[in-house]
Design a protein around this nucleic acid. Structure first.
Length: 250
DNA sequence: TTAATCGTTACAGTTACCTCA
DNA sequence: CCTGAGGTAACTGTAACGATT
């Protein structure tokens, strides 16, 4: 190994351990930057046996104790400094590969999440479509209800029936057109009654209102900010941020 | 007790050389 | 034979740490 080789031994105290500095009789007086590392063919690289021993040792401990370093160097016929440098370079190579592995893992996770996101987006689109259809259906039925006219007498008769039920202590719907108007079959003022009647919680009630309102707030992403305000879509402080988030995944 | 100095080690970055397609 | 890319041993500069004075 390194027969006839000429090794530099710089004056930098930090660069190398003086005890490990090669005491070559042919030590050059040239500045270290000018010195050439003379490496004959087949003598530069360590032998397979040496590499194998070094690898085995590295698997056990990536940092070598000084005592073990001396022992290993003696066993392999290397300078302790060579062993130290080999471990340094090995750690650097190992770190580099570890970074590569970590990157691949992160990339794999990212791809999985992106795939899940796409599935959720499709599901969301499907649900929004269903919602739109239901909304249209409700609008149509409401239009029929208004267009067939209104029999005040039969209404009063029905109203009495309803009022009788109220007398029994059960909440019911009131259809007082003079107060609510035709368009507001169930107005916002009746929300508490409605909630009791249908057993709606606050969140569902809000959604129902939006559907009843007949606007496109649920089918238009730009209006989802109103949902966020109610905590239905948390994590997005405002709709503009949400748009950025959404754009990222699009 | 505190500050200065020294020796040692680790690390990131670089250099020089070899191998191979 | 030449050449560029990649691998690797060795080097440089710097920072951190502990021991000593």
């Amino acid at each position: 190994m390194f027969d006839g080789g000429e090794f530099s031994c710089t004056s930098s105290a930090a660069a190398l351990n003086s005890a490990e500095c090669f005491s070559s009789s042919s030590f050059s007086s040239l500045p270290s930057s000018k010195k050439k590392k003379v490496n004959n063919k087949n003598t530069r690289r360590f032998s397979d046996e040496q590499i194998k021993s070094l690898e085995t040792m590295f698997e056990n401990e990536t940092k070598l104790e000084p005592r073990k370093k001396l022992q290993l160097a003696r066993e392999l016929g290397l300078q302790p400094r060579q062993v130290a440098i080999w471990f340094q370079n090995k750690r650097a190579r190992w770190k580099s590969k570890q970074l590569e592995r970590d990157y691949n893992i992160l990339k794999s996770n990212f791809d999985n999440l992106a795939s899940q996101c796409n599935s959720l987006k499709k599901e969301n689109q499907s649900l929004l479509l269903q919602l739109q259809k239901l909304n249209d259906l409700m609008q149509k039925e409401r239009g029929q209800y208004c267009s067939i006219g209104f029999d005040q007498e039969s209404y009063n008769r029905d109203d009495n029936t309803i009022k009788n039920k109220e007398m029994e202590g059960k909440p019911s719907l009131s259809f007082d057109l003079s107060e609510h108007g035709v368009n507001g079959v169930i107005s916002d003022d009746d929300s508490s009654i409605k909630a009791d009647y249908f057993g709606l919680d606050e969140e569902s009630d809000h959604l129902l209102k939006m559907v009843e309102a007949g606007d496109s707030s649920l089918t238009s992403p730009e209006n989802w900010g109103s949902l966020e305000d109610d905590g239905l879509l948390d994590q997005q402080p405002n709709s503009s941020n949400y748009d950025q988030w959404w754009d990222f995944w699009s």
